[in-house]
């Protein structure tokens, strides 16, 4: 409902990520160091008024993508590729300036909150007002009591709502949400996702990072399927509802099959480890359609209103 209300505006992406690679230098044995690439030539874009869900397995580097966009990667990370925000080049300095203002981040856990500050004060922050905070708390069903609590006293669901509320204190243009739904029951999760829908309908661009494909599909406009550190397919969410044949990449189809409300049949194998990735297609070891060509460079290509990184997709 209300999808694509931003269509009357010019369709210029709020955020464009082109061929982004992120690697970490890690210690192996003793004092030896090693470079580990966790994101590989990843491309995606989000428009105003749109929710782009980034869905993929745990450990595929989704959170790293969020941290890269916000410029909060740890010191041992190295980044390559290009990022554009509102059509402008987007470097570390810009990121620091816009973070927490035009770009809001909803982190994965309460660990990101100051454990020694009361919730109310923390959400209000430096720039917010008391009224706005009250209004948001009312909206998210947080009572006056919650304001006076410390982060450790919150239940999982409450914590999530507090994090969402604190991200919305300022007028955000781009919202990056990292796994906002686990810990919430179905009703609350739907509620939270509905709030994201509402934000998008008001003109925000929302990047929703989640492993809960099922829920994401219900609110997002497009879904980027993430696998082993790259996006293998971007599809309108309608395709996920339409069924496995509407999907493009074999991995997306495998995801569809594995959902408990469908077949609940998993594809065998595990996601390759960042240090030992195969050449070419990252999914080839688990793919039934694998052929000799899968070992070469696989570009992202347009197909049936979406994009896919597979030479066999039709």
């Amino acid at each position: 409902m209300g999808h694509n209300r931003g269509e009357d505006k010019k369709k210029e992406p709020v955020l464009t990520v082109e061929e982004l690679s992120v690697s970490f230098s890690m210690y192996r044995r003793g004092l030896k160091k090693e470079n580990l690439e966790v994101l590989h030539k990843l491309s995606l874009s989000v428009q105003a008024g749109e929710i782009l869900a980034v869905a993929g397995s745990s450990g595929s580097g989704k959170s790293i993508l969020a941290h890269a966009i916000l410029g909060i990667l740890p010191g041992n990370a190295c980044m390559e590729g290009r990022m554009l925000y509102q059509g402008k080049f987007f470097d570390a300095k810009e990121k620091a300036k816009l973070r927490g203002k035009e770009i809001a981040f909803i982190p994965q856990s309460v660990d990101y909150l100051d454990p020694l500050m009361r919730i109310g004060k923390q959400v209000t922050g430096i720039r917010g007002t008391r009224e706005r905070q009250r209004e948001l708390f009312r909206k998210y069903g947080l009572d006056e009591d919650a304001e006076k609590k410390y982060p450790y006293e919150l239940s999982g669901g409450m914590a999530r709502r507090v994090l969402i509320a604190s991200a919305l204190m300022n007028e955000a243009q781009l919202i990056v949400a990292d796994e906002p739904t686990p810990g919430l029951d179905l009703g609350m999760a739907r509620e939270a996702l509905k709030d994201f829908r509402e934000l998008a309908d008001q003109g925000c661009a929302v990047l929703l990072i989640t492993h809960d494909l099922d829920l994401a599909v219900r609110v997002a406009d497009r879904v980027a399927v993430f696998y082993a550190g790259t996006v293998v397919e971007t599809a309108p969410s309608g395709d996920f509802l339409a069924g496995r044949d509407a999907l493009r990449h074999p991995y997306s189809k495998a995801l569809w099959d594995a959902l408990p409300q469908h077949e609940f049949k998993p594809v065998s194998g595990t996601q390759p480890y960042a240090g030992s990735l195969p050449e070419g297609c990252l999914f080839q070891d688990r793919c039934a359609q694998r052929s000799g060509l899968c070992g070469g460079y696989i570009p992202m290509r347009s197909l049936r209103g979406g994009e896919v990184r597979c030479i066999h997709a039709k």
Binding site: E19, G75, N76, A77, C78, M79, R82, F89, F90
Partner: peptide, 13 residues
Amino acid sequence: MERTVSDRVFFHR
């Protein structure tokens, strides 16, 4: 494909 290198975190210098 053109590769633009920017926004590097030079922590390994």
